[in-house]
Write a protein that binds this DNA or RNA. Sequence first.
DNA 1: ATTTGTGCAAATCGTTTGCATCTGA
DNA 2: TCAGATGCAAACGATTTGCACAAAT
Lengths: 142, 142
Amino acid sequence: MRKKIRETTNDSLSLRLRLAGLRPTRQRSELANLLFRNGDRHLTAEILHAEAMAEGIKVSLATVYNTLHQFTQAGLLRQVVVDATRSYFDTNMGDHQHFYCEDEGALMDIPDSGIMVDASRFVPPAGTTVQRVDVVVRVKHS
Amino acid sequence: MRKKIRETTNDSLSLRLRLAGLRPTRQRSELANLLFRNGDRHLTAEILHAEAMAEGIKVSLATVYNTLHQFTQAGLLRQVVVDATRSYFDTNMGDHQHFYCEDEGALMDIPDSGIMVDASRFVPPAGTTVQRVDVVVRVKHS
DNA sequence: ATTTGTGCAAATCGTTTGCATCTGA
DNA sequence: TCAGATGCAAACGATTTGCACAAAT
């Protein structure tokens, strides 16, 4: 049979990476798989790295950091700042908000119904435009 | 004239510290003065430390950090998380929200009219209660 | 072949801590 | 007096970077 022109291994993830202008290297593809195969996720670099290790994926922590930032820049992830000591990344790029439980450091999406902050309700400082509006509902175990 | 029983040096700041259960030490009083004399402020430990130095106030950076946390715990300050790399403290304890300009790392109050997020609009995860709702409007120089 | 990514370990940066010394009540 | 504060420097933990090597196109 003839040589396959189009890459057979080119799953949708590789495609996504390509479209984002990122070479689908082994590490990036495997991390992308971890990140996106199971829908919405909120994780730190360390958590992702630990998961990768657990699945036998070889990546250094430094590469995980780099990759998360590249994905963020490419619009595949969103960085969520809730805790001064940790950086979370969210695979859900839709317009949504979060619950954050400080007790356990858990970040959760607010089920849709929720808060819609209407950007027209306020005027940004002179010379600036609104990038986005972050809403974090801080909760505590009661 | 008779000995003054009540401290003459007891300005409102020292009083505030006392009421908060904090000894009005020289450093705490002077930092409190810097923080509260000019109304609302948003600053990092480093900025406050630099200001103190500039005014000839002798405090170590470590003490500034400690003091900011003590004030926060005492309800005199609020810590605002907007940037993964810096911690801001806000002297405005009222219910309000912020603009954050990533370009210049500037944090500003949103003039009141603004956003009122109504906590009843959503249900916190089971077993938790809402602490507070943080809204950060991220803006960029255009 | 050339460009781009990766790994490691060292460097960085904000923040915290241990401990000896000082200070306010 | 003496519990509580402070200062310094060392410790810390998350993140980043420099550089030699490896992989993708």
